[in-house]
Design a binder for these strands. Structure first.
Lengths: 312, 312
DNA sequence: CGGAACCGTGCACAATTGGTGCATGATCGA
DNA sequence: TCGATCATGCACCAATTGTGCACGGTTCCG
């Protein structure tokens, strides 16, 4: 909004690559390249240097981006207050979130907004947490629901985003129905230390949670298989290939041959689900209302759980 | 730089007219109109309203411009530090000032810069103080030398500009050679209370100084004639039509039949000459060097005066 | 009360900006 | 050494953004 090139530069500073920046912003790679070059020309400073087959920010560039973060924040604040003052409708509103969040939290939010604000076009994008942050920077979306983690965004995150905690989502174990502990109401992770585990591949947020859950116990689990989708993981478990961890928010679906059990014991691993916005964009009426709705939805989920807890 | 439309809007907020904004920014009137309309559209707020045959900012517009001032300041700071960090040359550099300042202060500065920075294109614009401020806003110039006054810029001035005092320029009286006090070394304004005066027309800064000099004495001078150029005023005085005030920096030229005399007495009217920059643009190497040179030049002028003082 | 001056805006048209798609050179991994 | 990947230059095209001019509304002045 303030200057499209700023968004491009900020995404680049996050991804470190022209190609990824192009993919995230929706521009072509040559457009990103040209934008950065043009930006350097008008500023009269070198922002990027060639490094290997890629390109990276110069120290002057990093310094400039850091200053830009403050300016963009102030701009967001101003734009939000302007939108707030005049009761004008906002044309577009983009939401992002990872799979379970999208299903459980964003879908109700989108439905609600569609009902109360028919003139606003709400767009949903499902994406991994890090990607959600980059989409926020790229101004493709205005609000994201992601799993909190230290790695996401790095140190620049606090200059660029604001977080609101929605809920803590505990992890459950998923066992084959034939597992020796399948009949227990709850299971301690220590008792599964020697079982073959199924986790997610790559260095996803889930994977980080997975290892964190065990390192706090001083246990190194044996990861026998890796899956990308939970659907797949659950199928593996159903086939008796091992055991797995599944966030409470994720549904088992119509999976056969598996049971979901609470985790007992000292360590109760959970993931923290937060809503993230660009810094300064709070105060915009749509953002404020959305956060409100999200928190109410989260509260409903929590109270529903306590009810189940009492039932069980 | 950050967004040309911002400069346009800021100039408009200062001038209050599309036509004057167009003249100052160098755009056509319809371009200014279109820019403001486009800005409103993308922001989703109404910035201006029709009023009479003109147009004025809405309260939301004023609020937005106030916030914009802060953002532009921060941008100037960032751009200045970026330029400073990388020893890149700045392509263009614009200077503005009113007539005497242009001659006595800006000309040496321009000559100096031309010598030390041959790659930078220095542009000089002579203009009245208020116009200089608007040209600064319009980013047509980067530094102005003007006479300080309360009226110039209004309350928004402190959010938009930074000042550096260069020197205090005392006013002298100019008398016809045949005047009864022409032989005195110095003259008290009170002794000229009943003489016919020649001043400047309109509500210029000089005119404001003129009335201020007398109101502090409780005297209302009789303004018999008005002139636009000092050249003209001096000619009027030489013709015996009255007496006048002339800043020390302004030269008498080769005027005949007139004498210049110091003002004695309690009230020693003077005008304060200051260098003005856009807020935040200090720190840019060119600005810093220019201010340095200006202050040295001012110092030279002052010490030259003390020397003359001792001679006389 | 009428006319002239002025102001801001809409419109046709032109120029510049800013985009894509493809080819190219350079670098890295296998 | 070959293929994959990356950034960038270039031809080309679209969209933005400028100008010049005509027009309607308002104010000032005779």
């Amino acid at each position: 909004m303030i200057d499209p090139r700023f968004a491009t530069l900020r995404v680049f500073s996050s991804t470190g690559s022209v190609a990824r920046t192009a993919e995230l912003t929706g521009y072509s790679a040559s457009a990103v390249s040209a934008q950065l070059r043009e930006l350097q020309r008008t500023l009269g400073i070198k922002l990027i240097t060639k490094e290997g087959r890629g390109v990276r920010l110069t120290s002057a560039g990093r310094h400039f981006v850091a200053g830009l973060d403050g300016i963009v924040t102030q701009w967001e604040l101003l734009a939000a207050s302007a939108r707030n003052a005049s009761g004008q409708v906002q044309g577009q509103f983009g939401l992002g979130g990872f799979s379970t969040a999208a299903a459980q939290l964003l879908a109700p939010l989108a439905a609600n907004l569609r009902a109360t604000r028919p003139d606003t076009e709400v767009q949903l994008i499902e994406a991994q947490p890090q990607r959600c942050l980059d989409l926020l920077l790229a101004e493709r979306i205005d609000l994201a629901v992601i799993v909190a983690s230290q790695t996401s965004g790095g140190s620049a995150a606090r200059d660029r985003f604001e977080q609101t905690v929605l809920l803590d989502d505990p992890l459950d174990v998923v066992l084959p129905a034939t597992h020796r502990l399948a009949q227990h109401k709850s299971v301690a992770l220590e008792d599964l230390a020697d079982d073959p585990w199924i986790s997610e591949s790559g260095q996803s947020v889930y994977r980080a949670l997975f290892v964190a859950a065990f390192t706090s116990l001083g246990v190194t689990p044996h990861i026998a298989h890796e899956a990308v989708e939970w659907e797949t993981m659950i199928a593996f478990i159903g086939a008796g290939l091992g055991v797995g961890l599944l966030p409470r928010l994720a549904t088992l679906g119509d999976a056969q041959n598996v049971v979901r059990r609470r985790i007992s014991g000292a360590a109760k691993p959970s993931r923290r689900i937060v809503a993230v916005t660009r810094k300064g964009s709070r105060g915009s009426p749509l953002i404020e209302e959305s956060l409100d709705i999200l928190q109410r939805t989260a509260k409903d989920i929590i109270s529903l759980r306590s009810a189940e807890e009492l039932d069980g």
